[in-house]
Every structure is written in structure tokens, then in C-alpha cells.
């Protein structure tokens, strides 16, 4: 998805994992994913650079659809659709 498309997405849940380094954001995402329904969108805020590689790998493995990310000033927003 393009940054524009991502910005227009309506996230069901925003997980703020900016206060934690690897593997914190992944753990936060894993814990939060249970709180939304299949097909809904989750947004993860992370200041950890590695998260941009880790979240797609996690999605790929457990079956969620990774939609992409875009950078803010000091962190990134990552989007996925729950399987």
C-alpha cells in the first residue's frame, strides 16, 4: 500500500510500542492482536528500526496481512490486517 492509502486506513486498534526495544514491539503486537477481530486493522507504533523487518516476518508466519509502514519524525507506523 502507498503511504497515502495507509494514512486513509481506519485502524481498529493502535498499539503504542515506542517505549520498548526489540523484541518489545513484537510482543506488544502479539498480545494486542487478540483484542481485535479477523479482518480488522491494527496499527503499531515503534521507534525500533528492526520492527519494520520483524513485523512483516511475523505476519507472514502467523497469517496476518502486512499492509506496510510509513515513518513519522521519530518513529514508524506499521499496519496489518488480522487473519
Amino acid at each position: 500500500m502507498t503511504t497515502e492509502e495507509l494514512k486513509n486506513l481506519k485502524s481498529e486498534l493502535v498499539v503504542d510500542a515506542r517505549g520498548t526495544a526489540c523484541p518489545g514491539p513484537l510482543l506488544a503486537a502479539k498480545k494486542a492482536i487478540g483484542d481485535i477481530e479477523s479482518g480488522e486493522i491494527m496499527e503499531i507504533l515503534s521507534a525500533d528500526e528492526g520492527t519494520k523487518n520483524d513485523i512483516p516476518r511475523w505476519c507472514d508466519k502467523v497469517g496476518h496481512e502486512y499492509l506496510g509502514f510509513y515513518d513519522e519524525d521519530s518513529f514508524s507506523r506499521l499496519f496489518l490486517r488480522k487473519d
Binding site: P23, L26, A29, D54, R57, W58
Partner: peptide, 11 residues
């Protein structure tokens, strides 16, 4: 522990 946590988070 870091590897274990990442793996556990990935089911």
C-alpha cells in the same frame, strides 16, 4: 531470552 521471546511471539 531475546530469541526465545521473539519465537514465542511468533507462535
Amino acid at each position: 531470552m531475546v530469541i526465545s521471546l521473539a519465537a514465542a511471539a511468533m507462535d
